[in-house]
Amino acid sequence: MTALLEVSGLRVELGHGRGRTEVLHGVDLTVEPGQIVGLIGETGSGKTTLARAVLGLAPPNSGTVLIEEQNTTKLRGRALRAFRRSGAAQYVFQDPLRSLDPDRTVFDTLVEGLVVQGGRSRDELRDAADRVARLVSLPAELLSKHPGELSGGQRQRVAIGRAMAVEPKLLICDEPVSALDASTRITILELLLELRRERGLGVIMITHDLGSLAGVADRVTVLYRGNVVESGSTQEVLLAPQHPYTRLLVESVPSLFDDEPLDSNRRGELRDAVRALELDEPVASVAGTR
């Protein structure tokens, strides 16, 4: 089976002039169809930059991004737009309110990708919107509403629906649930699992919240200061982390049953271990989760 996404040796610099910093130092990442890959790392580790580079929003200095065996790093202008219109890769943003145009109705937002592709009648768009609304469990009466009238969970469903309308092969979700409360979080994660099952969707889930990955992701890739420090099946990485940074991440997850999630001595020990390994690159100052 050919990989859906194959990123190799990806280097990305951000900023202008003397403030230019390399944020990704040669990153490899593979996503198979129907696979959910968790991408974890702290703020500034380059998670979002990696996602933006995959989507062609941040031009890489070197390395390749193959989406269904097509190298997208070489695409510019018209060719890039034509590739994007195929809808192969889509992005779901962290904050569903800011990612939806407040002036446009849910219907307009859901069918935007189809309208850009062109060649569909008003009726076909109506049908498509109904289909997508069902797919992401949005009540049909919300189609005429504006984002300001929806709840947080509904907004994120609209955002996922907007991406799913063009039937992508790869969905990149940047912290898709971090702006949502716990119960809504579960329903959104279940939605992603269902889409994977029904559509064979490949998903990259960017997060710093290990808890939301545990039941969902097949594989986990740990990014630290622009390098992949660990990559493997979710079980391997979470149960037997090899890299000190991963260990720190895993042990920092609070549990309902511990009095103290991680005692300060242990945390200091792990921090020191991470520092000892110091990857002699300064922390990227430009990146962030937004």
């Binding site: 929003l57 034509a82 590739f83 219109r85 195929s86 992005y91 990612s99 850009v116 907007r162």
Partner: peptide, 9 residues
């Protein structure tokens, strides 16, 4: 939403 629109081509 502008980025999302650009990602649709």
């Amino acid at each position: 939403y502008v980025t999302a629109s650009q990602l649709f081509g």
